[in-house]
Amino acid sequence: MSFLTVQNLYKSFGGNRAVDDVSFALAKGELLALIGPNGAGKSTCFNMLYGILAPDKGSVCLDGRELIGMKPRDIWRLGVGRTFQITAVYASMSVVENVQMALISHHRKTFSAFTRAARLYRDDAMALLNLIGMKDQADRAANILAYGDLKRLELAVAMAHDPALLLMDEPTAGMAPGERRALMKLTADIVAERGVSVLFTEHDMDVVFENAHRVLVLNRGQLLAEGSVDDVRANPAVQEVYLGGGTTFGGDGDHA
C-alpha cells in the first residue's frame, strides 16, 4: 500500500517547465531515490512536497491527507521530517540543545515561560544522539562540529518527532566518500528499524546504488525511468542523460 502518492505535479517558471506531470508513490519503509541531471526538477519537486513552493497543478497525499496548500510547519506536524542540503543547525547552541529544540516544539512547549529550556527533554534528546552515535559530543557547540557530524546531527533533529516520512535533498552533499556511505548506512538502518519512508535525491551514485530500494529518474521535469537499482543502471536512456560512462563512480561492492 502506498503511503505517499504524488499525482500529476506541474510547476513552471516563466516558460520553463521545471516539473512536468510527475507522479509516483512511496510505500511504507521504502527508501526511494530521485535522481536526474542538473536542472531536472528534483529540488523543485521536494519544495512542493514540503510546502515551500506551490505547484501549478497536482496533488500530494500523505496517508490519505492532501499536503498541497499546507504550510511547512503543519506538514512537519503531520510527521514529515526533512534535512537540508546546506546544513541548518543552531550555531549558538550545543548539540543536545539542537535536538531538544525539536522535542520542545513537538511537545508544544515553545511558549512556556517558566522552565529552563536546557533541562527539557534532555534524556529523550540524549537517546536520539545515542542512536546516531553522537552521545559523547552532546555538550559541544554545534558550530565547531566536523561536517559529517553536522549532517548526522541534522538527521537526529529530523528524527526527533518520530516522523513517518523523511525528505532528504542531497543528504551527503559536500561529504567525504567514507562519511557519505556511513551516513546513508545509518539512515538505512534507522529506516529499517522504525519503518520510516525516505525520499532522497543524490548525485553520488555510490550512495544511491548501495542503499536505494527503488530509483526514479527525472529528466527535464519528466519521469524518464523508474525501477530497481539494476534496471536503472542498465537503462541506456538513463546512461545517456545522466550516468554517462560510469567513470566517475565505483560499482557497488567496488570498495566494500
Binding site: P37, A173, H203, M205, Y242, G244, G245, T248
Partner: peptide, 30 residues
C-alpha cells in the same frame, strides 16, 4: 560537488582541454 555524473565526465574533458591550452589547475576534491 552536486553535479550529474555525465557532466562530471564532461568537466574532466574540459580540464583536459584547459591543460592542452596551457592552463594550470589546482583542484580540491573529495
Amino acid at each position: 560537488e552536486g553535479i550529474a555524473p555525465v557532466i562530471i565526465e564532461k568537466m574532466a574533458e574540459v580540464i583536459a582541454e584547459f591543460k592542452a591550452a596551457g592552463l594550470t589547475v589546482l583542484l580540491s576534491e573529495q
